[in-house]
Design a protein around this nucleic acid. Structure first.
Length: 842
DNA sequence: CTTCCGGTGAGT
DNA sequence: CTCACCGGAAGG
């Protein structure tokens, strides 16, 4: 049989299967989804088997055998391979890129050479025959005649030529293989003896000299449970030597065992029982349960206001799914994946939960992944990439806060977890449940269309239909949504208040301090940043490699570029006009913190932003402190808006609601509405009633007014009008192509070429190029224009936007156009990055 | 994306 | 005749 392999070279030329023979020793082990090492262009590369076929496409002379099989259990299953193919097609990326995205990074092996000293090189007296006095040769001999080539090169940097010569001559034999970045963690573990009766007799017969060793043996006979060597030594306060002594006498066993890194080890999760559901929850649950029983793939949009108890519905639906021996995936936005959230799932489903998020080390993530792969977990809670969890039989995929833009991956493969989930669910006849208090317009339109309640008569036919809307309009326990006060900051200024706190917010904060209640303050950070500006000439510090302002880091007193990492010393005087009035504007949150300290002496503030949460576990630490009421105010950026649930929070303040409103992104209003609604939902979730104060300069804007009244549907009506008028999603779809090159002129001409080729192809396919507003199909190619960041890492950037509606084969046209581009004779080629359904247009 | 290979031209 | 360098094609 022949294995068709995708090699790990992410370029267009190699993005196709290559055939390899399966050696007899591996037959039966190599499967679709296996990870293998294969010879390719004179080296060994990692690859994935995507098919096993009886005949090769090339003649057998060219065919080479697979060099090695990298795992016992294939890391991917045939359904994931199929999914990868869909992703590579839909999101225009190399198949290997999609495949790689599905496995933990610990498994991304790189080729590594091991050199062995050939036997002929040694004479009978042990002296080396060929090159006697090379120091590296002695080193190889000392290491048992075998050593990693990389290590040898590292130890003997000057010996490259002589090592190479030795390999060519055959003195050294080179063997190439793929080494994983990380193996399972092994630990020495003590076991009770195989034959307890025999051991017991032997212990009794032993002299009193080995008292300590006898103690070890008796302990193991009594407890019976395997225990890590180090832990036992500590428990009995002795050294491991004593325990090893007991092993030598045959009283106990010491073996290497695979240790599971459990990031949540030693943390007790209080077991919870299903709560009784409210009427609203029950109705939703019933519908999900029935759909689960039908075992056909469906998509539900669970539109529940904040505090309506969506999580309990998820938990019970999962329970139902598990009873049926099917597994469940829960996706949560990265920043909402708080210990609180994890606790709810661990508390209900215990050890059968695997947790996956970016704050785990790569080893921890690998172990959680294996827990799923080996069938020891039935539920996974994780960020975006958990949609690829290697379960065998998925019954349910839940996407909480489905509107979050973090479900879109910004690097290749630029997939949207929501779309991947829908596709994967179809493979498994599983349900997708999209949950949100503020659904994305795309999902909402898809769900309304299927219900026959047209959200808009002209909703695009390209919008996927067939989602079922499940509304949950009431909060659990009949608690009212918090009252939202809009404060017009223009009036504050007129009234002579130049502080960043309105009088009302000031008073509200004071009241919480008096009552000992807590407040959450949100700084809508987009628009603020930490930059340097000269107050006399207006100079701002720019990155020399990217067209972007440098950010100021207070700790290191340095200026840094976010995009390329360039760093320089912060200047003392303006480099342009030599004025001393150069100012460093700190993060917005820093400024707010300072002002709070000034206005409310003794106030305890926890500040959460990129500066204070980069350290591992810091995020968690702050939230625990706040939960323990060790602070009065939790101040932060978007991360304080999501998923937090603290009973003593009765005030939410939004310092400036509109900083995100006027960004040049068609989703600006939607993002603002979502953020305000989410953060308002943090107040008054328990017994104490909540209050929200929103400061704004645009109190009439529909996004702000709708959020004041918690009125999703009027926001949607208004926003859909704008989107339709401007022909933006969900009334069309977008593909953003970014081109970059060192040379501006070449970049522009290549960009023009791409755009005109695309236009020609579209015309030839008979698709009209403008939107008639009647919902019919069209494809429009905009640009090329300079990207929002026109230069990054010394490369200029231009972009084309493809806007289309209906089944026009847009990505096929694009792929065709890219392949038609005639090289750049002599110059390095223009790099192109394709973003299908981009979330951030900025 | 690397590596290989054949072609060229300068150097021994 | 050898060697370094380059550009283009192939990689199973």
């Amino acid at each position: 049989m022949i294995a068709r392999v995708i090699v790990d070279v992410p370029s267009r030329a190699t993005d196709r299967p290559f055939d390899y023979g399966i050696p007899d020793a591996m037959s039966g082990w190599v499967e679709v989804g296996s990870r293998v090492g294969v010879p390719f262009a004179g080296r060994v590369l990692q690859g994935f088997v995507i098919a096993i076929v009886p005949f090769a496409e090339v003649d057998s002379k060219k065919l080479k055998p697979i060099a090695e099989l990298l795992d016992h259990l294939p890391p991917l299953s045939p359904d994931l391979v199929e999914l990868a193919q869909w992703i590579s097609d839909k999101y225009c990326c190399a198949l290997t890129t999609a495949l790689q995205a599905m496995i933990p990074s610990a498994l991304k092996g790189k080729a590594d050479s091991v050199v062995t000293l050939a036997e002929e090189a040694e004479a009978s007296d042990g002296r080396l025959i060929e090159v006697a006095d090379e120091p590296w040769l002695h080193y190889v001999r000392q290491s048992g005649g075998e050593v990693r080539l990389a290590l040898l090169q590292e130890r003997f940097p000057g010996a490259a030529a002589s090592i190479k010569a030795a390999i060519q001559r055959g003195t050294l034999e080179e063997r190439v293989s793929i080494r994983d970045r990380l193996a399972v963690r092994k630990v020495l573990t003590v076991f009770p003896p195989e034959n307890p009766a025999e051991a017991e007799a032997s212990i009794a017969a032993a002299s009193s000299r080995a008292a300590k060793q006898q103690e070890v043996a008796r302990y193991m006979l009594e407890h019976r449970e395997p225990i890590p060597l180090a832990a036992l030594a500590q428990a009995l306060s002795m050294t491991t030597g004593t325990i090893r002594g007991a092993e030598e006498k045959g009283w106990i066993l010491i073996r290497e065992t695979v240790q599971q890194r459990d990031p949540y080890a030693g943390r007790g999760f209080r077991r919870t029982e299903p709560l009784s559901l409210t009427e609203g929850q029950q109705a939703v649950y019933d519908e999900l349960a029935e759909a689960l029983d039908n075992e056909s793939s469906r998509v539900f949009l669970l539109h529940g206001v904040t505090g309506s108890g969506k999580t309990e519905v998820y938990l019970q639906a999962i329970e139902r799914c598990l009873k049926d021996e099917r597994q469940a995936i829960v996706l949560v936005p990265e920043i909402a994946l708080t210990p609180q959230m994890v606790e709810r799932f661990k508390g209900r489903f215990g050890d059968s939960v695997a947790v996956m998020h970016s704050r785990l080390s790569s080893g921890e993530r690998y172990d959680e992944w294996r827990k799923i792969r080996e069938g020891r977990a039935q539920v996974t809670v994780g960020a975006r990439s958990a949609v690829f969890a290697p379960f065998k039989r998925i019954g349910l995929i839940i996407i909480d806060e489905e509107h979050e833009s973090s479900y879109k991956q910004e690097e290749s493969p630029k997939y949207h977890a929501r779309d991947v989930a829908v596709w994967r669910a179809r493979q498994h006849n599983a349900l997708v449940v999209l949950g949100s208090a503020t659904p994305s317009l795309e999902s909402f339109v898809a769900a309304s269309a299927s219900r026959g309640q047209e959200a808009d008569g002209n909703a695009s036919p390209s919008v996927k239909r067939g989602a079922t809307l499940l509304p949950m309009p009431d909060r659990v326990g009949g608690r009212p949504l918090p009252k939202v006060h809009l404060i017009d900051m223009r009036d504050e200024l007129k009234g002579g208040n130049r502080s960043m706190f309105s009088r009302q917010l000031h008073e509200a904060l004071l009241l919480r301090l008096e009552r000992g209640e807590q407040s959450v303050l949100l700084l809508n950070r987009r628009g603020y940043s930490t930059f340097v500006m000269c107050r006399s000439c207006g100079y701002t510090a720019q990155c020399p490699h990217c067209d972007i302002s440098l950010t100021y880091h207070q700790k290191s007193k340095a200026l840094r570029c976010h995009y390329c990492g360039h760093a320089e010393q912060a200047p003392e005087v303006c480099p342009s006009c030599e004025s001393e009035h150069i100012r460093f504007f700190g993060t917005g949150t820093q400024r707010v913190e300072e002002e709070l300290a000034k206005l409310f002496p003794g106030i305890r503030v926890i500040r959460m932003d990129v500066d204070t949460t980069t350290e591992k576990g810091s995020h968690e630490k702050w939230l625990t402190q706040f939960g323990n009421r060790e602070a009065d105010v939790l101040l932060g950026t978007q991360m304080v808006a999501k998923g937090l649930d603290f009973p003593y929070v009765t005030l939410v303040g939004v310092i400036a609601a509109d900083t995100s409103l006027h960004l040049p992104d068609f989703r600006a209003a939607e993002k603002t509405f979502q953020l305000l609604t989410q953060v308002a939902g943090r107040a008054g979730r328990h017994e104490l009633p909540g209050e929200v104060v929103v400061q704004t300069y645009n109190p009439e804007h529909y996004a702000i007014v709708s959020s004041q009244h918690h009125d999703y549907s009027s926001f949607v009506q208004e926003e859909l009008k704008h989107r339709r008028f401007m022909a933006y999603p969900p009334f069309c779809r977008l593909i953003l192509v970014t081109l970059s090159h060192e040379q501006l002129a070449l970049l522009i001409s290549e960009g023009e070429k791409l755009a005109s080729t695309l236009r020609d192809l579209a015309r030839a396919a008979g698709v009209k190029s403008s939107d008639d507003g009647d919902g019919s199909r069209f494809i429009d190619i905009l640009g090329p224009v300079a990207s929002p960041i026109p230069r990054m890492k010394d490369r200029y950037r231009f972009q084309c936007m493809i806007k289309y509606r209906g089944n026009v084969g847009a990505s096929d046209l694009l792929k065709q156009a890219i392949s038609l581009l005639s090289g750049t004779n002599g110059q390095p080629p223009v790099t192109m990055s394709v973003d299908v359904d981009p979330q951030v247009i900025l």
